[in-house]
Design a protein around this nucleic acid. Structure first.
Lengths: 246, 246
DNA sequence: ACCTGAACACCGTTCAAGT
DNA sequence: ACCTGAACACCGTTCAAGT
């Protein structure tokens, strides 16, 4: 199943020679690589311990808990997002959305962790928060309006990505996809006229009536539209704020 | 051939008297109740088997897999959402958002399943799809534009809720909250001026810099704003479509 | 058709013990 | 400080067997 290293293993060992072979970061990177390759369902403490050639307890010494490790993995991915700079606020937000999606596309199997486990971990996330706040300040928001606009931006961005790349029924995808495709085609035009009429376009391309996720069927144009709708909505909000202030 | 009856039978065995005591629906309801009370982390096949007073294998006979049961639970929750009728499309969508949130608020612990496991299961979800499509048709969308607008609406609605009620670090919340609160207050005003200036307002109320989720600190005003931004953005999109058509 | 009882191959986490 | 080796209490799923 797994091959041993060329160098002879110090079978019995206490503290390593080099003064700390493992670290939280190394473990998180190994976990990310494993999740990228085999999915979140195949992730386990023991598995990544084996991958690193150590005992499960060793991993626990560095990470404390499985949940903490997954949070670390999520943070590692988010750290890859490079916020844009020096743009009009509308374009800044649009670019942030695109860069974030590009990052998630590189690690689609961790998408579910972003919505779920997202908490402020590193300074890089603070950078991201500050960037969004700056853009929205430039748009004219402040105080309560700034808070609301900020939450809407974050939710719109990460919410869409969480859904686009959310895992569909794991293994029996083949059978399940067939079943859904079947039911989709038994939709009665009299009960659901709009759905029935647009079925060729919607089938497998629209949430709830799809059987592949963003990895196989990316929702490119919908995401671009989502950016536009969000920015347009924010502009309308900014006008409302201005209107009520003067 | 028959075993001697020396060993007493403490329990009943075989097919039950009433012709099917258990069913998929009953199991899903028991699972939902359990998740509502103890959270998704405390969910297990064996646990709900014990709750129902049967063996784990019995649950498996009805549900096939743990994942399928969770999907059933998610569908059960979504079935509680009652789509509004007979409203202007803007108000229809706003009402749908509010009713969906009201439902998720009743079962916050399943929020993570909605984004993740959402697939067309019952006819009620088809109803919801059809409703959104009707509203957007009334708004003037069709074909590709309809698909894009639809995906944006679903993602905006479920994405926000998934994030608002996503579970934060499970048990050691006390210690973790303290740590985050600590770090939040060490933010340097020179590096992150906007964040620092608005910290009293943002702390624990904004994504990424909060340590309670929607169950304890609901984001009411942000969600209402999110509705407005989404509807305003859709209206702008509708104008763009009309503009390019004539 | 529906359920028991037991087994299998895992899992996260803890802990004494080594160095 | 860092890791071994083993143990504990769980878990999802399978399977023969009963009725």
């Amino acid at each position: 199943m797994k091959k041993t290293a060329l160098a002879p293993k110090p079978k019995t060992a206490g503290r390593p020679t080099g003064g700390g072979a493992l670290s939280k970061r190394l473990i998180a990177e190994a976990a990310l690589a494993h999740i990228d390759e085999f999915g979140l369902g195949a992730f386990s403490m023991r598995e990544i311990a084996a991958k690193l050639g150590v005992y499960p307890a060793t991993v626990h010494w560095h990470v404390s808990t499985r949940e903490a490790l997954l949070a670390e993995v999520a943070a590692t991915v988010m750290a890859e997002v490079t916020p844009p700079t020096e743009l009009l606020w509308q374009e800044w937000i649009a670019e942030l959305f695109r860069r974030c999606r590009a990052t998630v596309r590189r690690h689609p199997n961790v998408a579910q962790l972003l919505g779920a486990q997202l908490v402020s971990n590193g300074s890089l996330q603070t950078e991201l928060v500050e960037g969004v706040l700056e853009a929205l300040t430039e748009a004219g928001f402040e105080g309560q309006s700034l808070l609301e606009a900020y939450n809407c931006v974050i939710a719109a961005m990460l919410g869409f990505l969480t859904m686009e790349f959310s895992p569909l029924p794991a293994d029996n995808t083949q059978a399940w996809a067939e079943e859904l495709r079947e039911r989709v085609h038994t939709i009665r035009p009299l009960d659901h006229p709009v759905l029935a009429r647009n079925l060729p376009l919607l089938a497998n391309n629209a949430f709830i009536v799809r059987w592949d996720n963003g990895t196989t069927v990316p929702l490119d144009s919908s995401f671009e539209r989502h950016i536009q709708i969000t920015v347009d909505g924010l502009e309308a909000f900014a006008r409302r704020v201005k209107g009520s202030q003067k």
